[in-house]
Design a protein around this nucleic acid. Structure first.
Lengths: 208, 208
DNA sequence: GTATCATTGTGAATGATTTCACAAGCGATG
DNA sequence: CATCGCTTGTGAAATCATTCACAATGATAC
């Protein structure tokens, strides 16, 4: 299969959201133009993105909402739930653990960890904060697919190494550091400082 | 001036971080190769990025750490502090408001808002949660440059419109919706669900 | 059943970004 | 002061992503 760019995957994820909205609104079909309008892109872009995976539309009619929903869920691997662990139960970790939305989208939070004795044993909506020492065994036992890293920057590489050793192949890092992962492991970063600096650049350069 | 791509700005922000590390380690100079190694890119990329703004290096020697720090801070508009408001004092908003790191990087949090009467008046590290009704006046009075949107998806467009009307020209949105802003206003999105779906895609397609 | 309209799917063209490759510059060495 | 080793800055080339443009096709109207 062709190489799929990260931005194309991001857009598919957006289209999925628009399709869910269209479904909720009771629409039977949707055109590439409408998806483009909502996503701030062009209809040609939408069609190219979808054509990377197949021909899902009907000429003259657009795309069947339920059918395209099914296809995109399939493409994105959202046909089954994934097990997610949150590592770090500080304010950010706690905020992420309590997002009810993740569950609805197929990301099941199956464990939360922290190294602070004061936090261990606390229970948040059915989840008990586990000690750092339980990390390796629990990640394995619960077959955690995705680890969310919400620990301080200087602890991040350590927990990532342990998570990878415990079989985790996808990580979402919130610590403001560049982490190293071996080939075969996917790492994405959410770096709020970086985003703020991007906004600063725009402000300082009158870009808009 | 040439058009600067968003990815180039992201990388500059990263280089800034590496330079701060190098400074803390007492290094006088740093080469494009070293910056590239830390950033997971190539030395040519680093030099191209910097060359968009000038010639800061010495051939044979690399870049002076303090000088390049100064230049990049200048480019990114980090020579003066920006006023930031956090809109939404739920778990995420509270986590963001309490990040001590922002202050150190020149992003001064000057106000926090919420519409929940139970939260209004609560004080977090010197900041008092203000009612929704105070939003417009306070954003203006405190000359807020950047608004961080941490409200539920269905409230997001509303607060964005009000913030823009109150003179805010840069926004960082955490709500999982596509927001509209007028020309001249910069919007960046942090969408955790989108990132998780990207990881799901990688897992499902064995991309690693 | 033919004409009409809307919309897809996709090669070709364009535009943007990254990588290559190398001349030129700087400091250190003898 | 000539040479050497290292590293920058930058056109040219290569790669990657987006947009254009249009033939092909399904639905609908008459």
């Amino acid at each position: 299969m062709k190489k799929i760019s990260e931005s194309a995957v991001r857009r598919l994820s957006l289209y999925l959201r628009f399709l869910q909205e269209a479904e909720a609104a009771g629409n039977e079909t949707i055109s590439s133009g409408e998806l483009a309008r909502r996503g701030g892109t062009t209809s040609a872009q939408v069609r190219k993105d979808l054509s990377l995976f197949g021909s899902f539309g009907k000429r003259g009619m657009g795309y069947s909402v339920p059918e395209l929903l099914r296809e995109i869920r399939q493409i994105l691997g959202l046909t089954r739930p994934w097990n997610v662990a949150v590592i770090g139960a500080g304010r950010l970790g706690s905020a992420l653990s309590s997002f009810r939305d993740f569950e609805a989208r197929g990301f099941h939070i199956s464990a939360v960890f922290d190294s602070d004795p004061a936090k261990i044993g606390q229970s948040w909506g059915g989840l008990t904060v586990q000690p750092d020492e339980a990390l390796d065994a629990t990640l394995r036992e619960r077959r955690v697919d995705i680890a969310i890293v919400a620990v301080p920057a200087d602890a991040a590489q350590g927990v990532v190494d342990r998570a990878v050793a415990a079989g985790v192949r996808s990580l979402l890092n919130f610590a403001p550091v560049r982490l190293r992962v071996p080939r075969g492991v996917t790492l994405r970063n959410v770096d709020v400082t970086l985003e703020l600096e991007g906004l600063s650049f725009a402000l300082a350069n009158g870009k808009g």
